[in-house]
Structures are given as structure tokens and as C-alpha cells.
Computed example of a mutant assay.
Amino acid sequence: MADLQRIVDELAARLERPLLLEDRLQRVVAYSEQNGVMDDIRRDSILRRHTTPEVRQWLRDAGAHDSPGPLRTPGAPHLGLLPRVCVPVRHEAGLLGFLWFIDAPPPMTADQVEEAAAAAPGLALALYHESLATGLASHRELEAVTGLLRGERDAARQLIEAGAFPQGQPVTALVARPPSGEPDEAVRLALEQGLLAVRRRLSGHHPLHLVRYDHAVLLVSGAPLAPDELHAALSVRVVVGVGRPRPSLAEAAGSYAEARHAAEVAARVPGLGHTARWDRLGVYRMLTGLPDHELHPGLELLLAEDQHLPLLETLETYLDLAGSAVATSRALRLHRTSLYYRLQRVEELARTDLKDGGERLALHLSLKLARLSGRYRPRGVHQVIAQVGQDPV
């Protein structure tokens, strides 16, 4: 697949136009950086690795499957389809695929179409030898990686036999996801493009990737990629979770589960930074499998009303600092009298005793668990400080 991608990238650079290569069933095989005009069909093709039946029929009716050379296909506003230039890719008269360019604006010149047609034989040969003869078609890789992350051991065998991943090499999973909110199509497309760029750069490490609804997954042999490199490759802001390496591809699901949990923790606990490694999550590693309804009863009472948020923030800082009133006052820039007043209010409202070690532990763990569930969202130290004037001194 490396030759195909190289040819596609070089052709797109020469023509200064984005392009997409499909096989004869119109399943996406490779595409260049999409830095020009884009319609819904191009976006969906990249995200789903195939074209919808309605669009396939429209392009077939326009002559894409029968044309011996380049042709222009009309737009279809009702399908979200812009006009295109299609260059059929053939090997020994057999149709292997299609090279697609969006033809607006401005439309391709005759010289550009001729240069695209001149590249078709090289693409046909690479497509024949790599995509059809020895490699995995992209839709098959997508299915295999999806199965792999579900723990299907046969999926690992398929990928290894196809040469997509080396036999007997360790695997590490990285998960990238937006830090908040549900990603839209543009974010998912940016994730797809960024991961493809990473794959090209790390081709010697046989990387695999998958973009899911709310996150993206990268599997690499060993750990050749620093998380900061992944951040740099993506054009959108994300948090990255890193799972522990596993000795073989068949065990990738375990590393993936850890990476996904680590990314979730990084999204919910900003203090951890934009990257979280599973083996460095500390207490959050133990809390990820616990039900969020198993909280200290007193904490449930404080969480029930927004007005108690300053008390929760003060309590968490106090417990994080091992119950040191001096350190907590300094961290929050809070007068000692105000701190004692708040802690007393916590004891009254939560019906607890902060001198009891067991109670402190239960409250501390419950606070962290409430963070993970999203029920507790602290505002930051500067906003806790702003509450000082409201406390009796």
C-alpha cells in the first residue's frame, strides 16, 4: 500500500488538487490530503471507506464503469455530490478502480486531466500487485481491526497473514478523542487524515488505525510513537490515552481498553494534561471499573446542589494535600478561618467526621469517582479563590 499512497500524494502535489482512489467496487483505497473543496460524499467516503449505493449507481449511470479514459461526471445536488473528473484505472483492459477529482472550482484543465490519465497505468500496476494480490483492501482492514478491538483472535490472524502487522511483535494502543463534547464530522475527518499521515511516517512499524464515533485508535508495533508526535500530527485538539504494550497482536484489545479509559480520564481530569498513560493513572486506574453510584452518602448530598460546589472543591484540595490545613490555605489562598469554616460545613452537611481516616478515604475516593462520571466538575483553583469574600473570617 506504500507505493499506492506515494503515487497518490505525488500526483496530488503536482496537480495541486486533492484526489481519492477507489477499487472497482468503489471502496476507498487511498487518498491525498483533502485541502480543497469537499462535498458530503467525499467526506463520507473517507470516514466510512466506501461510497453509498445511490452514489455508486449515479456514477455508473454517468459512464464511470464503461469509459475507456477520463470523463467528467455531473453533479447531483440531491445526493450532495459535486461534479467530478473520473480517471478509470485499468490493468490489461480489466477495471481495477477509479481516480476521482472534485471538478469545482475551478474545473480541471485539459493538461491536468491528461497528467492524471498518464498516472493511471502506474496506479493500476501498484493496485494490482499490492491491493488485489498481496495486501488487504481497506474495507477488509477496517473489518479486521474492528474485530481485533472486540477481542476476536481470528482478526489478528487475518491481519498478520495479509502482512499488515508483523508476527510475534508487541502491540501498543493509543486512543485520541476530543477533550469535551461529541465530535462532529469535521473532527472525525481531521482524525482520519492525521492518523493516515502518521501511518505513512511509521510505515516500517506496521501501524493500524480506526476512527470510531467518538474517538480514534492507533495500533503500533512496540511503542515507536511518542504521544506528543500524535498531537502534532492532528489538526484538532485531543487528549491521548496510552495503553500498556501487549506481547502479540491477538491481545491488542487489552491495550485498547486501557488506552480508551486513560483518554477518558484525561478528558475528565484536566490536571493530568493532554496525555494519560494507563500505568501512570494512579488511583484513577482502580476507579475506572467501579459503578459511579457507589459514592459516600454524604458526598451524594453535597453533589445534589450546585451551591455546595465551593465546599467540594475545598474538600478535594484538602484531601489531595493529605489533610494539611497549612498547605490547603496556601494552595487556595484562603484564610485559615475560612478554611476551617468550610470544612466544618462539609462535616455538618455530609454527616461525616474528617478526623476519621476511613471517612477521609471514602470521601476522597468518592470525589475522584464523581469526577470520572462527570457528576463533579470543579472549576479550578482561581474560581475557588474568588469565593473567599463570601466566607466569614
Rank of each mutant, 00 (worst) to 15 (best):
Y318E: 03
Y213I: 14
A325T: 14
E347F: 03
Q390H: 06
P207D: 08
Y128M: 09
D3G: 07
T275I: 08
L367P: 06
T172F: 03
L363N: 00
R280F: 03
L372D: 12
E347C: 07
G181L: 04
E10R: 14
L315N: 02
L354R: 06
Y256T: 04
E16N: 14
R140E: 15
E130S: 10
D61N: 07
V239Y: 06
V393W: 01
T328E: 02
G135T: 03
G97Y: 04
V55I: 12
R285T: 01
P74F: 05
A156G: 00
L15G: 03
H364D: 01
A304R: 12
L127E: 06
V8W: 09
E229V: 10
D279V: 11
S203A: 15
L312V: 01
A232V: 03
L354M: 02
E33H: 12
L132P: 00
V326Q: 12
E161L: 14
V87T: 04
M1F: 10
E229D: 11
R157V: 10
L372K: 05
T109N: 10
G358M: 00
D214F: 02
V238A: 07
H206A: 13
Q34K: 02
D228C: 05
E305M: 09
F98E: 04
G241F: 04
L174W: 09
D154Q: 14
L234I: 04
G204H: 06
D66N: 08
E294L: 06
P207Y: 03
I41M: 05
A120H: 01
R379Q: 13
P83F: 14
P166N: 07
D61P: 01
L301I: 12
A93W: 11
D66M: 07
A176Q: 05
V211E: 03
T51K: 13
V269K: 01
R200Y: 07
H50N: 14
G243T: 06
E185I: 14
V381N: 07
Y341E: 02
E10P: 10
L148M: 09
L19C: 14
A327K: 15
E251R: 13
R277A: 10
T73C: 12
P392D: 08
A133N: 09
Q26G: 14
H205D: 11
H65C: 08
S67E: 09
L219W: 01
G323H: 04
R140W: 13
L311Q: 13
A155T: 00
